[in-house]
Amino acid sequence: MSSGQMSQEEIDALLNGTGPVDTAVAEEETAPVDHSIPQETKDILGEVGNISMSQAATTLSQLLNRTIKITTPVVSGVTLKQIIDECEVPKVVTTIGFKEGLVGNNVLMIDVEDAVIIADLMMGNDGKNVEGKEFTELELSAVAEAMNQMMGSASTAMATMFSKKIDILPPSVEVWQSPEEATLENITDESTICKISFQLSVEGLLDSEIMQILPLETANEIVEIMLGDEAEVVQGREQEEMVNETPAPASAPVAPAPEAPKPQESVNVQKPKFQDLEQTGAKSSPRNLDLIMDVPLDFSVVLGKSKKTIKDILSLGTGSVVELDKMTDEPLEIYVNGKLIAEGEVVVINESFGIRITNILSKEQRITHLN
């Protein structure tokens, strides 16, 4: 009260042990912990996430052969407990550790129903009529491959932004069936983490939220790298401006001298210097066969060949027999994308024809065959 006096009702309440509670103390005890992160950090992580995950979405579009749309990311500081309380289980959680370039892990979370659709598309199906389908180890492996390809593309994009090599470890995929199973390595329930949320849609099949979770240590390192690059650029510009704006030293006025005939300018000719490719090629282009493991190739077996004239071809009809240049005991030729790589023999497997490889041709043998 403004007068500093208490009413009779307040006095009676104090005597009975039910007096007014200090609201300031109560609010302080029940106030939620602030897990917010600086706005500058949010902006930087949002920009990095927007570029890297857009590249990841492009890769996923190529894998699924579907149009993928992804929204602008929303960055927030939360705890693992908050994520568990807000999201619905079961969830498919993919953890990808950084091998080089960054510390910590990168975690992607997606609903099981949406993971089933992605797995069905990865296996060459249409992604429809999968409601109620069991999420087995086969689907888990398909989702792991999709997430691995996505984060590989995202890491490549980050490496370009950071001007440094970013390498990742193979993904670890698990399913959170209940909140009790929701744990992340080196992250406690009350640890502050960065949640980057995207709305991911696959044409006519799913429209779901996908969450990217970064430990605070990883997020801070990304911000430091980006701010460091910006500082270097600004510092370089300032030095350049200082050089350009430095006034020329004052000198006494000199009367203009009469123009003399200009002598012919000499031309300095020197041998050009080129960078030695053998020294840097192996270091800058590491071999990574995982990037091309899923590239399809045409595999064909040639039983034999024969040359015919147009007259011979026109005379062919049902029941005609064409003699080939192969003997019955000669090996057949095996081609990959039109290139001869091996020889083999015909076998029968469960009432189907097969080919058993008997010889892998060397480079010299392939050249000899072409000649």
Score class of each variant (00 low, 15 high):
residue 268 N to R: 12
residue 247 P to H: 07
residue 250 A to W: 01
residue 336 V to C: 11
residue 274 F to V: 04
residue 332 L to N: 00
residue 321 V to L: 07
residue 287 R to C: 02
residue 259 E to C: 06
residue 334 I to W: 00
residue 337 N to R: 07
residue 276 D to M: 11
residue 298 D to Q: 09
residue 247 P to W: 02
residue 293 M to K: 13
residue 300 S to R: 14
residue 239 Q to P: 00
residue 286 P to K: 08
residue 336 V to N: 10
residue 248 A to C: 01
residue 312 D to P: 11
residue 300 S to G: 13
residue 299 F to D: 00
residue 319 G to D: 14
residue 335 Y to L: 15
residue 334 I to D: 00
residue 246 T to H: 02
residue 276 D to K: 10
residue 310 I to D: 02
residue 318 T to K: 14
residue 246 T to F: 02
residue 252 A to Y: 15
residue 240 E to F: 14
residue 298 D to Y: 08
residue 328 T to N: 08
residue 328 T to A: 13
residue 337 N to A: 10
residue 260 A to T: 13
residue 276 D to F: 04
residue 256 P to R: 05
residue 335 Y to M: 14
residue 267 V to D: 05
residue 229 D to Y: 07
residue 265 E to I: 15
residue 303 L to I: 05
residue 323 E to K: 15
residue 328 T to F: 03
residue 284 S to M: 14
residue 234 V to M: 09
residue 236 G to V: 01
residue 258 P to V: 08
residue 247 P to I: 01
residue 306 S to E: 06
residue 334 I to Y: 00
residue 338 G to N: 06
residue 271 K to L: 15
residue 307 K to A: 08
residue 340 L to M: 04
residue 306 S to H: 06
residue 256 P to T: 02
residue 242 M to Y: 08
residue 307 K to P: 01
residue 254 V to I: 06
residue 321 V to P: 00
residue 309 T to W: 01
residue 271 K to P: 01
residue 342 A to F: 04
residue 307 K to N: 11
residue 288 N to E: 07
residue 288 N to I: 10
residue 305 K to P: 01
residue 336 V to L: 09
residue 274 F to A: 05
residue 307 K to V: 09
residue 285 S to C: 06
residue 330 E to P: 05
